[in-house]
Simulated scan of single mutants.
Amino acid sequence: MRNHVDRLFPPQPPEPAPECAICADLDRKRATANAEGDYSRASDCNVLLRQHGKHAR
């Protein structure tokens, strides 16, 4: 039996789609959360960006 730890890196944060007001709003909220050190809220914004639509990259 091998003793090892698999390390998974977090995925890249999603990028907002150009010219999408919802994506832009979530991106602003994420930037504010990161600047304030509220990484839980920033993560929530990432989830919402991913769920927003297929155009979110």
Rank of each mutant, 00 (worst) to 15 (best):
M1A: 13
M1T: 02
R2K: 06
R2C: 04
R2I: 00
N3E: 02
H4M: 03
H4N: 09
H4L: 01
H4V: 01
D6V: 03
D6M: 04
D6I: 02
D6L: 03
R7Q: 11
R7T: 00
R7K: 11
L8Y: 07
L8V: 11
P10I: 03
P10D: 13
P10M: 07
P11H: 05
P11M: 09
P11V: 12
Q12Y: 04
P14F: 12
E15Q: 08
E15K: 02
E15F: 02
E15M: 02
P16F: 06
A17E: 13
A17G: 08
A17I: 02
A17W: 03
A17R: 09
P18Y: 07
P18V: 08
P18N: 09
E19W: 10
C20Q: 09
C20T: 02
C20R: 15
C20L: 08
C20P: 15
A21T: 05
A21V: 02
A24G: 12
A24F: 09
D25S: 13
D25M: 10
L26F: 13
R28F: 04
R28G: 10
K29I: 10
K29R: 14
K29S: 14
R30P: 13
R30L: 09
A31H: 15
A31L: 13
A31V: 14
A31I: 08
A33S: 12
N34F: 04
A35M: 14
E36H: 05
E36N: 14
E36M: 14
E36G: 03
E36Q: 14
G37W: 01
G37I: 05
D38R: 11
D38I: 08
Y39G: 02
S40W: 00
S40T: 09
R41S: 10
R41D: 10
A42R: 03
A42M: 03
S43W: 01
S43F: 00
S43L: 08
D44K: 00
D44F: 00
D44R: 04
D44M: 01
C45W: 00
C45L: 02
C45Y: 03
C45A: 04
C45E: 05
N46C: 12
N46S: 10
N46K: 00
V47W: 01
L49R: 11
L49P: 00
L49T: 04
L49G: 06
R50S: 01
R50G: 01
Q51I: 07
Q51T: 11
H52L: 07
H52P: 00
H52V: 07
K54H: 08
K54F: 03
K54T: 09
H55A: 13
H55G: 11
A56N: 06
R57H: 13
R57Y: 15
R57T: 14
R57P: 13
